[in-house]
Amino acid sequence: MASDLKPTVEFDDTLGKLDIRLGKVLSAETEPSAPKKSYRLKIDFGKYGVRTSVGRFTGHTPEEMVGKQVMGVLNFAPRTIGDVQSEVLVIGIQFKGADSGEATPLVPLLEGKLGSKLF
């Protein structure tokens, strides 16, 4: 077992409080006002609406991002990044060989229903 694991927690106190849902990237463009190279994404979460996210997914081209299904946290407070209100946190992992914070989004193996909840 890895020694850098965090302590055990209860589901209802952690993941159970997050509203993580499936969305589809409608558009991706460079966000010039962000402090670090980032994209502004418009993401459709089905009945939960279209939301904006600013994230460091620049290891991918905007064309690669459009049409991808991604998982996003819908119930974090909006965060101002540059001049944009980022309304959703897209879940990702560090892009291999990239600086900390540069990410690739977690994507499902099969297409799912927009707005589906992570469980």
Rank of each mutant, 00 (worst) to 15 (best):
G23P: 07
G23K: 05
K24H: 09
K24V: 02
K24Y: 08
V25R: 00
L26M: 15
L26V: 11
S27L: 11
E29A: 03
E29T: 13
E31N: 11
S33I: 07
A34S: 00
P35Y: 10
P35H: 12
K37W: 08
K37T: 05
Y39G: 10
R40G: 00
K42T: 01
D44H: 08
D44N: 06
Y48S: 09
Y48C: 11
G49S: 09
V50S: 05
S53C: 14
V54P: 05
V54E: 05
G55K: 11
G55A: 09
G55I: 07
R56D: 08
R56Y: 06
F57P: 10
T58F: 00
G59F: 05
H60C: 03
T61N: 14
P62N: 01
E63Y: 07
M65I: 05
V66I: 05
V66M: 09
G67L: 12
K68L: 15
Q69H: 08
V70I: 15
V70R: 10
M71T: 14
M71V: 13
G72I: 13
G72D: 12
V73W: 04
L74D: 01
L74S: 10
N75V: 14
N75I: 13
F76G: 04
A77H: 13
A77F: 11
P78Q: 15
P78M: 08
R79I: 07
R79Q: 02
T80Y: 02
G82Y: 03
D83P: 12
Q85S: 14
Q85K: 14
S86M: 06
S86A: 12
E87C: 03
V88G: 09
L89R: 04
V90F: 10
I91L: 15
I91T: 13
G92Y: 05
G92H: 09
